[in-house]
């Protein structure tokens, strides 16, 4: 190995991240961030697609392996179990026949299995695991953030992709719902990633279609309760 002597240019920027995502070398948190960017940024998704195409022939190294029959049944149960019940019940011509009752028993079993398995797929009760994401950018601004709001925890996770506030200033995060005035969610802590808890009263404002905006404010945030500095990045909240 001659690693120490190695010289030369490196692949950089989003293209490097896209290639690293496709190769699979990114650590868990970096990979999650890349996954969210694929969902929210078309340009990044295209870079990823191109690297997938470049490396695709390497997949010839994967040998086919026989799959146990139970797997397809489990998939069908997860995707279609409730539909089977509806189909069986919707055939009046079969009513009273042995076939129907056998069919119903199978469907009922399937429905029961789905009922038992469903909480694993969708947690019960009112606890939502909905996530909203927003890719924050602005024309002519170097500032780019990715924001993820988790309803379950009431936290906003922020990843800074590029840009920093001018010295002596802070970035402040706002939510704008429809035509209403921006409401401050607080000053964004420094660093590449940050977590901002949202107080109960404001959580109702964080819905799909609302807008996140970042303004540059004096250190400590706007004193007026309204944005005073330029908006350096903004983006719609989308549910994923």
């Amino acid at each position: 190995m001659s690693l120490v002597d190695d010289q030369g240019p490196e692949l950089g920027g989003d293209d490097a991240v896209a290639a690293e995502y496709v190769l699979g070398v990114l650590a868990g948190d970096e990979r999650q961030l890349a996954t969210l960017r694929i969902e929210t940024e078309q340009a990044f998704a295209r870079l990823v697609d191109r690297w997938e195409a470049y490396f695709a022939p390497l997949a010839a190294a994967y040998a086919s392996v026989d799959v146990p029959a139970s797997i397809k049944q489990a998939i069908d149960l997860r995707l279609f179990a409730s539909g089977q019940v509806a189909q069986a019940a919707a055939r009046p011509g079969l009513l009273g026949t042995l076939v129907f009752w056998r069919g119903l028993a199978v469907a009922a079993l399937a429905a029961l299995a789905f009922y038992v398995a469903a909480p694993l797929i969708n947690p019960p009760g009112e606890i939502s695991d909905q996530r909203l994401v927003a890719s924050l950018t602005a024309e002519g601004s170097a500032v780019r953030y990715l924001a993820v709001y988790e309803e379950r925890t009431g936290d906003i996770g922020l990843s800074r992709i590029a840009g920093e506030p001018v010295q002596g200033h802070d970035f402040e995060l706002w939510v704008i719902e429809g035509q209403q005035a921006p409401v401050s969610l607080g000053v964004i802590p420094g660093g590449e990633s940050a977590r901002m808890p949202v107080n109960e009263a404001l959580r109702a404002k964080l819905v799909s279609g609302a807008v996140f905006a970042i303004s540059e404010e004096p250190a400590g945030g706007s004193a007026t309760g309204k944005p005073t500095g330029p908006v350096v990045a903004a983006g719609d909240l989308k549910s994923i």
Binding site: P9, L11, A19
Partner: peptide, 14 residues
Amino acid sequence: TMRTWLRRSLIKLK
């Protein structure tokens, strides 16, 4: 070092 090394390989590959 590994990251630098792989990114050099990636630019050559590209």
